[in-house]
Design a protein around this nucleic acid. Structure first.
Length: 339
DNA sequence: AAATTTAACAACCGCTTACGA
DNA sequence: ATCGTAAGCGGTTGTTAAATT
């Protein structure tokens, strides 16, 4: 019954790690690397279960860990990401090099307490996000916007700035987790950030969308970096639907060009009745026009709706639901235009 | 002394593999 | 061989004891 199968040691030590134990673990891992945690305790001479060793290494002993207080940038990133993905700490941590999920979780939990206390007294009309306790990871959109506004006001940033103005991250969202909610529940959406990185590292090819117009292309290239977003929405009943391979395999350092994204989606089964080419052309023209008038790089949000059983029998039909193009400021950090 | 923060475990989850009917 | 399922494992998140301030 209450038997720990992971611990086949005679006496399994628990609780805080002693410096001696730390040293043993460090010595073992640094010389042998880590592969199978369950055999670490034995080989390293530790009276611990493998899981405990793993946690100790991951959260505390590994050399590339970042300590000390969170920078304001990190804090903003955490807040924004939490707004997007909720309590998925590991996911959030993956965007903060050297920080552990545990640390971020702890930070959030102590931070949110503080903010709740503060906001109840000093900012009565700007509430913290309302969390659905049946689905704790899901957060109401309007709350996010409130939170967003709250920080924008709080930190006195100009309207030109975004929460990400310092690092210019690039986001790609996947809102396919929608299927976790009911079909009618439109106000709880939890997009997943698929990847993000500094737009500084973007190649000019990323914005090479105007194949037909080299003049425009040149303009685009010379404009400064800024945050960008691409979002996908796939709506429930998509049990057979898989994310396009391009996204899943992705491809840490390259942004998926929009045309590829589209064809990617369309190449999946059932996309047959889309006039993709015409849409593409239409977008291209919109884009050219927009760039010309705005004189800056656009950001994009695409969302896709999956409509079932309409025409193709049981076949799933993917329909481009909406696409929105705007200034970085109007789109980032959170794709509220998906509302 | 109380409140906050940290570091650990418990519980759970999804994936893979081993096993067995 | 094949399917179902149990076991094992790495990984993630909720919770809380202990340390710290």
């Amino acid at each position: 019954m209450g038997h720990h199968s992971c611990c086949n040691q005679q006496k399994v030590k628990r609780g805080l790690w002693s410096p001696e134990e730390d040293e043993k673990l460090i010595r073992y891992i640094t010389t042998h690397g880590y592969g199978c945690w369950s055999e670490v305790p034995e080989k390293a001479g530790l009276q611990r279960c493998g899981k405990s060793c793993r946690l100790r290494w991951i959260n505390y002993l590994r050399p590339d860990i970042r300590r000390g207080r969170f920078t304001p940038e990190e804090e903003k990133l955490i807040i924004s990401l939490h707004g997007v993905v909720g309590n998925r700490w590991a996911h959030i941590a993956s965007h903060l090099p050297g920080r552990t999920d545990n640390e971020i979780k702890n930070y959030w939990n102590s931070w949110i307490k503080k903010k709740i206390r503060k906001s109840s007294s000093s900012a009565p009309n700007l509430s913290t996000p309302t969390i659905d306790h049946h689905h704790p990871q899901l957060i109401n959109y309007s709350s996010i916007n409130q939170l967003d506004n709250y920080f924008t006001n709080q930190e006195n940033v100009t309207t030109k700035e975004t929460l990400f103005s310092s690092t210019c991250p690039l986001f790609m969202f996947d809102t396919s987790s929608l299927h976790e909610t009911t079909a009618t529940d439109t106000n709880v959406i939890r997009p997943e950030v698929l990847f993000h990185h500094d737009s500084v590292s973007l190649s000019s090819d990323t914005w090479n969308l105007n194949h037909h117009d080299h003049h425009q292309h040149h303009q685009v290239q010379t404009l400064p970096p800024h945050p960008a977003a691409i979002a996908f929405t796939t709506i429930h009943d998509t049990s057979n639907y898989n994310l396009p391979p391009l996204i899943e395999n992705n491809v840490e350092n390259s942004m998926v060009p929009i045309d590829q994204v589209q064809s990617c989606n369309m190449d999946e089964e059932g996309g047959e009745l889309l006039t993709l080419e015409s849409l593409q052309l239409q977008r291209q023209e919109e884009l050219n026009e927009w760039v010309e008038t705005q004189q800056q790089c656009p950001s994009f949000i695409f969302s896709w709706e999956s409509v079932e059983g309409q025409i193709g029998g049981e076949e799933q039909v993917l329909v481009p639901n909406s696409s929105h193009m705007g200034t970085p400021n109007s789109l980032s950090p959170f794709p509220s235009s998906l509302l």
